[in-house]
């Protein structure tokens, strides 16, 4: 039972990171019905930038929390610039092209971003400075650390902030209108190009924070960390129902829990034929299962094929 609770805690922590990344996929998808294939790389860049800043500031004797905050604050604009660039270079010129064209150009961007990161941060695994001392708290037999609590709290705050923005501001209304029907929204005076750009910017900012969280959680960063993370977050978005904000949150947390419990128990269920090294398979199995049996996801509204 303790192991169960422990895996649940780990799953929710990781899942809340997935949720924040998944929000980026789902927002972009909601607006332009395209998968932002390079979104995972934006998360990676966020982690890398934060890593550099934190490493530089760590010996300065500042309070650890401030150092991490500084890293995040630098990572956000960098990621936003990349997100904006992605939209301008890979997506906007191809808005009227067949769907596969922007996907392929986004794959190109993602290769470029990865290898630029390789040039800057090397191809090695980078130890993320653990300047916040991990303090365990005991819940029954299970342990939750202050880092985990911080990650969950930050994710919740970001999701709440995003929800407020989307459902309570003029900008959010314009975004939802564009998602519903870009032509009509355009006729009603919404500047579609601006809304799409803003969506990429917000998604990138979320990605930056997610990068810092995932770096702090695992304690390492790597120039290829973005693709797997991105893929999992995308699966989370699909699980929740792509284009649906609460769906991305639910999907992220669920996927984290499925992964953690799966990795924790697969050995028991398969007589140790399979072990926790199969953890990464669960996300894909969930993805394929959802797409095959319920393509609209758990909370999805859009029905079927729009093309």
């Amino acid at each position: 039972m303790d192991i169960f609770i422990q895996q649940l805690i780990n799953g929710v922590t990781l899942g809340s990171v997935y949720a924040v990344v998944a929000l980026g996929y789902t927002m972009v998808y909601g607006i332009i019905q395209l998968i932002n294939f390079a979104h995972g790389e934006v998360v990676m860049i966020g982690a890398m930038v934060a890593f550099s800043v934190i490493t530089a500031l760590a010996p300065g004797g500042w309070p650890p929390l401030m150092v991490v905050a500084a890293g995040t604050i630098v990572a956000i604009p960098v990621c936003m610039a990349i997100g904006y660039g992605l939209e301008r270079i890979a997506y906007r010129p191809l808005r009227n092209a067949p769907r596969l064209a922007p996907l392929i150009s986004a794959i190109g961007m993602s290769i470029i971003l990865q290898h630029l990161a390789l040039l800057v941060w090397s191809r090695n695994f980078i130890a993320f400075p653990q300047i916040i001392k991990s303090e365990p708290y005991h819940i029954g037999g299970a342990i939750i650390t202050n880092v985990q609590i911080a990650i969950i709290a930050t994710s919740v705050a970001m999701m709440a902030g995003l929800a407020l923005m989307v459902y309570r501001t003029r900008l959010g209304t314009a975004m939802r209108a564009t998602a519903q029907n870009p032509q009509v929204a355009g006729l009603m005076g919404v500047d579609i190009n601006r809304i799409i750009a803003v969506t990429f910017l917000i998604a990138a900012a979320l990605a930056a924070v997610a990068g810092v969280m995932v770096g702090s959680y695992y304690g390492i960063a790597h120039y290829q960390m973005g693709s797997l993370l991105g893929l999992k977050a995308f699966s989370a978005a699909v699980l929740g129902g792509i284009g649906n904000l609460p769906g991305a949150m639910l999907g992220g947390v669920l996927l984290g829990v499925v992964e953690a419990l799966g990795a924790g128990y697969i050995g028991d269920f398969t007589n140790n034929w399979f072990g926790s090294n199969y953890q990464d398979v669960f996300a894909f199995i969930v993805l394929i299962a959802v797409l095959v049996f319920r393509p609209t996801g758990l909370l999805g509204e859009r029905v079927g094929d729009r093309t």
Partner: peptide, 17 residues
Amino acid sequence: KLRGDYLAIVTLGFGEI
């Protein structure tokens, strides 16, 4: 039966599996 971009991601996942 999935639409093009979903299929792309699913096949990517298959490759990784």
